[in-house]
Computed example of a mutant assay.
Amino acid sequence: MNHCELEEVTQHINDKISMIKRLLELRAVAKDPEKRGTLLKIEQEVSAINELLDRFERYVGQQRDLLKHLKDLEEFFQQDEQDVHHLKNNTPLHMPRKGQQTAQQEGQVAVQSRQTDAPPAPQDQAPPRKSQRNQIKEMEFITVPEFDSIPTYMKGRITYDQLNAAVQSINTAITAKYKILHQPIKTLNNASRMLQQRFKDQETKDTKGQFFIVEQDIREFTQMKVDKRFGSMLNMLRHCQHLKEVRGGGLARFILL
């Protein structure tokens, strides 16, 4: 046994001796009736302190569990925050308009249902469709899966956002063109009347009832350059079956699907 260990044992023995002496002194004091009441009060205070310490210990344990739970929530929130930042930084500029697509599909289902289940209505009772005559169809934006399905040789350096910017330009030209076509000729000025007549002259039996544009419409109604790169984007849109090309009379017509 070294010197340090001997001192620790000596100190422990001295502490025990001091405690025994205090107990003997308290035992002697307890026999005194006058001092016994004071000792009982001290005992009550010590018991109350012990109970309070027990409550504090339980409260500390609850707070420790709550702190652990809050740390877990903080990790979840940090992960959600990272996901939100990722979505914010990677959201496409042009989102597909699913509501219009769903409405179009519902219309097709309704037409099929009428064709299969409903009896043929008399021709003199067919309801007119005046409310749909002036509706202008627009091209749906390209989705990411559609863009990924385009062959690499066809895409070249054209990005997803650039292709959808072309879709936006086509929709702008379509809207401008058919607004003029749907207006009464009396409400048009000379320039618009000439445009309306040109639009009508460009129509053929293949474009009847369809919405289409030509390259000249893109030049007149948008800032898009009609060049070789724009032609590549038209090929990509044809690949995604968003439009088709019909040629005739030396003119290429791009019909929306």
Results as ranks from 00 to 15, higher is better:
H3W: 13
E8S: 00
T10A: 10
T10Q: 14
H12T: 11
H12N: 11
I17F: 09
K21M: 10
L26G: 06
D32N: 15
E34P: 01
K35V: 02
L39F: 01
L40E: 05
V46Q: 00
S47V: 15
A48F: 10
L52M: 07
L52Y: 00
L52R: 04
D54C: 03
D54Q: 12
R55S: 12
Y59K: 09
R64Y: 12
L67I: 15
L70W: 06
E74H: 04
E75M: 03
E75Q: 07
Q78K: 10
Q78N: 09
Q82V: 14
D83H: 11
N90D: 08
N90A: 00
T91L: 07
L93D: 12
R97E: 04
Q100N: 03
Q101A: 14
T102D: 05
G107H: 06
V109P: 04
P119N: 08
P120D: 05
P120Q: 05
A121Y: 09
P127S: 09
R129V: 05
S131M: 05
Q132P: 02
Q132V: 13
N134F: 10
E140M: 04
I142K: 01
I142H: 05
T143C: 02
T143N: 00
T143Y: 03
P145T: 13
S149P: 02
I150F: 07
T152C: 06
G156W: 08
G156N: 08
I158M: 02
D161C: 04
Q162M: 02
Q162G: 02
A165V: 09
I170Y: 06
I170E: 10
T172D: 01
A173Q: 05
T175N: 02
K177E: 06
I185T: 07
I185H: 00
K186D: 15
K186M: 15
T187W: 13
T187V: 12
M194F: 02
Q196K: 01
Q197T: 04
R198E: 04
K205A: 09
K208L: 05
G209C: 07
I213R: 01
D217Q: 02
T222K: 06
Q223P: 03
Q223C: 07
D227Q: 06
K228Y: 14
S232E: 05
L237K: 06
H239L: 10
Q241P: 05
K244Q: 06
R247G: 09
L251E: 14
A252N: 15
